[in-house]
Computed example of a mutant assay.
Amino acid sequence: MSGTGAREPGEVFGPRMTLFADMLSIGLATAVTCLPVVTAPAALSTACAVLRGAAEGQPATVGRYFTALRRRLRAGDLAAGAVALAGALLFLADLALAGAGLPGAPLFAVVAAGIGAAALVVGLRACARPESRANWPSAVREAARDAVRDVGGSALVLLAVATAGLCAWMLVPLAFLVPGPLALALAAVQARTGAVAGS
Rank of each mutant, 00 (worst) to 15 (best):
R52K: 01
N135A: 10
D146M: 05
A117V: 13
A175K: 06
A31K: 01
T193S: 15
A54P: 00
L85F: 10
L186S: 05
V151E: 13
A195F: 07
Q58V: 06
A118I: 04
C127L: 10
A86H: 03
Q58W: 07
R125V: 08
F108K: 07
P9H: 09
G198I: 04
T39G: 00
A188G: 05
A143C: 02
L158A: 07
A112E: 08
T46Q: 00
R74A: 15
L24D: 00
G27T: 09
A183M: 01
A109W: 01
V161F: 05
A113Q: 04
S45M: 02
R149M: 13
R72W: 13
V62D: 08
A143T: 00
N135W: 13
I26L: 06
A187F: 04
L156D: 14
A134M: 02
T30Y: 09
P130T: 00
A162V: 12
A185N: 01
A98F: 08
A43N: 07
V178G: 05
A191W: 06
A43G: 08
S199F: 11
R72Q: 10
M17I: 09
C167S: 12
T67M: 11
A29T: 04
G10C: 08
L159N: 02
P103C: 04
L124K: 03
V62E: 12
A155C: 10
P173C: 11
P173R: 13
A100N: 02
L186H: 03
F176Q: 06
V172Y: 03
V161W: 04
T61E: 05
G27Q: 03
A98C: 15
A93C: 02
A6Y: 12
E142Q: 14
L159C: 13
Q190G: 01
M1D: 11
P103K: 10
A168R: 04
Y65C: 00
A68T: 10
A49K: 07
A185I: 08
L182T: 13
A105L: 08
V196E: 11
V122Q: 01
L156T: 07
A139W: 11
Q58K: 13
G10I: 11
R74M: 00
A105I: 02
D77S: 12
M17V: 13
C167V: 11
A113V: 10
A118R: 10
A47L: 15
V140F: 05
G165N: 03
L186N: 00
A197C: 12
S25I: 06
C48N: 07
T193V: 15
N135Q: 03
P41V: 15
R125D: 13
A79K: 10
P9M: 15
V157Q: 03
A162C: 10
D22P: 03
G57D: 06
A42C: 15
A168I: 00
A75E: 02
A60I: 01
T46K: 05
A160S: 05
V12I: 14
P130M: 05
V62L: 09
G87W: 03
A126D: 14
P130R: 09
G5L: 15
L35Y: 07
F176A: 12
L182R: 11
L120M: 03
A109Q: 05
R72L: 04
L92S: 08
A82K: 03
S2P: 15
T33I: 04
A197Y: 09
P130E: 14
V38C: 04
D146A: 11
A191R: 15
A75W: 11
G5R: 12
P173I: 06
P15A: 01
M17D: 02
F91C: 09
